[in-house]
Design a protein around this nucleic acid. Structure first.
Length: 495
RNA sequence: GAGCCCAUAGCUCAGUUGGCAGAGCAUCUGACUUUUAAUCAGAGGGCCGCUGGUUCGAUCCCAGCUGGGCUCACCA
């Protein structure tokens, strides 16, 4: 790009030369910064504006110049730092004639500036640093987007997220909140004696979910590896190893389409607790997410896309078949009849309605007629075994598993189940998956002999859960697209 | 992967029933020492996404391509 500078950039680059000619560095790195804008505001809080100058509160702050209003022999500017924004006021009389003239001839909106001075409140009521000194810390070459409309072009916002973050304060707030959410969940689990662990992102067998993996290659080992689609099978090995409560917050990778709900890499919280059941995890999830909402909003209710989400416990429980009956308007008992189910699936245009296993069809019908209508938060249970190769069978109902999905606003936020720890049953489930793979199902599980070996040593009875962090953050930041909560969402190559 | 929509100055957007390309902000010059999208006067700034086609002439019409958005499909 250097060499293709437009006129605006050329003007600014000339100012670097002007700085150099005056013996001033355009990119110094030795300036210490004593205050944040927020600390300066706090120092002035509660002091009547007329008393403020007499207090001579001396502060020094640094930040990006996001607004610049020049009045000849005085200039107002707004500095933006990690803590907020604060106005500064530079007077020729205060900073000195030569320094002020250099300021006028070299400083633009978008530069990073340090100022030191005392606090006062302007006639219009704005807390302001009256600068005695200033220093250029970084000269910006590219101009900032327009001050009023800002940057709104979605493609530019994602590709040049740094600019988005500079000018759109609400975007910064989304990612601050995302960090708070992750911290909250981490602390919540640590407080309950869960151990945070890291398991392989590159796996010789991609297991733990039904999804297509990315493949990569290790040259020295001359071995193909898969980017993980889930950490599940490794976390359960740790249960075998004696870590009875473990969790991991990390990226999963799935080689599938991109949409407002899907990014190829996304963040998942998975946690596993020995001697717990999926019922225990429902209670834990209710408590964890409702207290998270309180931590963020001070309330269990919060807005989402023009409506309200209410995380106040207890949450609704619904079975897959019950949901199909309610939202599909069919008698629940008939869904147990294979013929009825196939006929209904066929009518809904579900592929392979005549040949797919009934459990797959039931879930497909659920997703077609019910899921998006579930306002939630709702725990959906009664999942069939065919779609749950890693879940424990329900006692007395061996075609069902002890599993729930948490649905909010028609979207899956969490998936949890009592873990299958019977090595013989698990081997059978893998074999069933292999049959599907032979029939062309690219998402079916591979056989994982080492995982079976681990189960043969004995995995304590346990329950585990995965929570899609990005979707949770979408809910809690009122974001309609997953790209709004991922700093650098995946895009095609820039044209 | 399919359908619909979009791409004009650094940014936000007009516009041309096909005839030398426009505004605001930003930039540059000048005035202005408590402003808040500061104000006032003047100036510069464009491969109208790319490649073809139609036409005397294309930013505009047509086709293809590239990138993006939304919806659907797949999934979490």
């Amino acid at each position: 790009m250097t060499g293709e500078w437009n006129d605006l950039m050329r003007d600014r680059f000339r100012k670097v030369d002007t700085l150099a000619a005056s013996g001033t560095a355009a990119y110094p790195n030795d300036q210490k910064v004593g205050w944040t804008t927020a600390a300066a505001r706090a120092a002035a809080a509660g002091i009547p504006p007329e008393d403020l100058p007499g207090k001579s509160i001396r502060v020094d702050i640094a930040g990006r110049i996001v607004a610049l209003r020049r009045f000849g022999k005085a200039t107002f500017l707004v500095l933006s730092d990690r803590a907020g924004r604060l106005q500064a006021y530079l007077k020729r009389d205060a900073v000195g004639e030569a320094a002020y003239d250099l300021f006028l001839s070299t400083v633009d909106a978008g530069d990073i500036l340090w100022v030191e001075g005392t606090l006062f409140v302007t006639r219009t009521g704005e807390l302001t640093v009256e600068a005695a000194r200033y220093r250029m810390l970084t000269k910006g070459i590219r101009p900032l987007p327009e001050k009023w409309h800002g940057l709104s072009d979605v493609e530019t916002r994602y590709r040049q997220r740094y600019v988005d973050l500079i000018v759109n304060e609400e975007v910064r707030e989304i990612f601050r909140r995302r960090a708070r959410i992750v911290s909250f969940l981490r602390e919540y689990l640590v407080r309950r004696d869960f151990l945070e662990v890291e398991t392989p992102m590159m796996q010789p067998v991609a297991g733990g979910a039904t999804a297509r993996p990315f493949v990569t290659h290790h040259n020295a080992l001359d071995m193909d590896l898969y980017l993980r689609i889930a950490p599940e099978l490794y976390l359960k090995r740790l249960l075998v190893g004696g870590f009875e409560r473990v969790f991991e917050i990390n990226r999963n990778f799935r080689n599938e389409g991109i949409s407002t709900q899907h990014n190829p890499e996304f963040t998942m919280l998975e946690f596993y607790q020995a001697y717990a059941t999926f019922g225990d995890l429902m209670a834990l999830t209710e408590d964890m997410l409702s207290s998270l909402a309180v931590g963020i909003f001070g309330d269990t209710k919060f807005p989402y896309q023009g409506g309200t989400v209410d995380f106040t416990p207890p949450w609704e429980r619904l079975t897959v078949a019950g949901a199909v009956a309610r939202y599909g308007g069919v008698p629940e008992e008939r869904l147990a009849e294979e013929g009825f189910l196939r006929e209904m699936a066929g009518r809904l245009g579900i592929p392979d309605a005549a040949t797919s296993p009934p459990g797959n069809l039931l879930v497909a019908v659920f997703e077609e007629v019910a899921e998006r209508k579930v306002a939630g938060p709702t725990f959906v249970t009664g999942y069939p075994i065919e779609v749950s190769p890693l879940s424990r069978r329900t006692d007395g109902r061996p075609h069902l598993v002890d599993r729930f999905e948490l649905i909010v606003r028609g979207r899956e936020i969490a998936n949890a189940f009592s873990e299958l720890n019977d090595p013989v049953d698990q081997r059978g489930r893998f074999e069933e998956q292999l049959l599907r793979r032979e029939r062309g199902d690219e998402e079916a599980h591979f056989m994982d002999e080492d995982f079976l070996r681990a189960l043969e040593y004995g995995m304590p009875p346990a329950a585990g859960e995965g929570i899609g962090i990005d979707r949770l953050v979408m809910l809690l930041t009122d974001s309609p697209s997953i790209r709004e909560v991922i700093l650098f969402p995946q895009l095609r190559k820039e044209g």
